[in-house]
């Protein structure tokens, strides 16, 4: 049997909001250590890696490893049915054909169950090695969201240029050009507002706005986002999910023709 309960269904709602624009379906790998998802978008340009640790759940039981193919749009519709304060429980039996979502109101006077059919999926799993990156930048997620939105008006892609002083985002197109420079914050008193640059080598990379604007949908999960970059390798854009895990987006860079 598989059963995972979260007191705050809002966390799962936010996770779904953070992936539904990129993925139509995904395999949820459930084991004793937690729930993991790795899935590429249809164009193989970006990849979502979601990790929810079993110890972050209020209750977690997984008697045997399960791979459950789920429709993200259907799951998202079901989670929209949960009240903001509801507890959510995911439940499936061994060799399941469906998964049940159970929403319970805080005073336990309302119990709603939604059963979703699982889907058979061919899965392509990429091996992503642990890498040390030339630049790792931590910045407020709301600022990153705003920069991606603002610069998307000027072009289809945004160039990230990182030095030890800070990070510069720039875009150009038919209307003109724009660039935004963020300096590393001198004092780290306010962790949520801090901009921290960890640089080994300066980096300059160009990424598609369309995908960046999907990644920033994870902003409500965490006040800070971490961008890991090395020249000519995919960007890693990471948001922590409270004490329970993280969501990482990988995005292949654009290169000059």
């Amino acid at each position: 049997m598989f059963e995972a309960r979260l007191t705050q269904s809002a966390i799962l709602k936010k996770v779904l909001d953070a992936v539904k624009d990129l993925l139509s379906e995904a395999t949820f790998e459930c084991s004793d250590s937690g729930i993991q998802v790795q899935a590429m978008d249809n164009a193989h340009v970006s990849l979502v890696s979601l990790n929810l640790r079993s110890d972050g759940f209020d209750k977690y039981r997984c008697d045997r490893n399960l791979s459950m193919g789920m429709s993200i749009s259907c799951m998202s519709k079901i989670l929209r049915c949960a009240g903001a304060e509801d507890t959510v429980t995911l439940r499936a039996w061994d060799s399941p054909e469906s998964i049940v979502f159970i929403f319970e109101s805080p005073n336990k006077d309302k119990l709603a169950e939604y059963e979703m059919k699982l889907i058979n999926m061919d899965q392509e799993h990429l091996g992503i090695p642990e890498t040390s990156y030339s630049c790792v930048v931590k910045m407020p997620s709301a600022e990153f969201t705003r920069i991606c939105r603002d610069l998307s008006q000027f072009g289809e892609s945004i160039t990230f240029a990182c030095t030890k002083e800070g990070i510069k985002f720039s875009a150009s197109g038919d209307y003109g050009s724009a660039n935004i420079k963020l300096a590393q914050t001198a004092d780290a008193d306010n962790e949520e507002e801090a901009i921290i640059v960890n640089m080994q080598e300066p980096v300059k990379l160009t990424f598609s706005c369309r995908y960046l604007n999907c990644f920033v949908k994870a902003g409500p999960l965490c006040n800070q986002v971490q961008l890991s970059m090395s020249d000519d390798v995919p960007l890693v854009c990471e948001y922590k999910i409270g004490d329970i895990g993280h969501i990482r987006y990988y995005l292949a860079p654009k290169i000059d023709d």
């Binding site: 590429m40 193989h44 340009v45 970006s46 990849l47 392509e124 799993h125 990429l126 091996g127 992503i128 892609s157 160009t206 598609s208 390798v233 995919p234 990988y250 292949a252 860079p253 654009k254 290169i255 000059d256 023709d257």
Partner: peptide, 14 residues
């Protein structure tokens, strides 16, 4: 115009 790379250019299927 820069061209978009494929993620499979960077990571192997396992």
């Amino acid at each position: 115009t820069p061209i978009q790379n494929d993620l499979k250019e960077f990571y192997a299927l396992v």
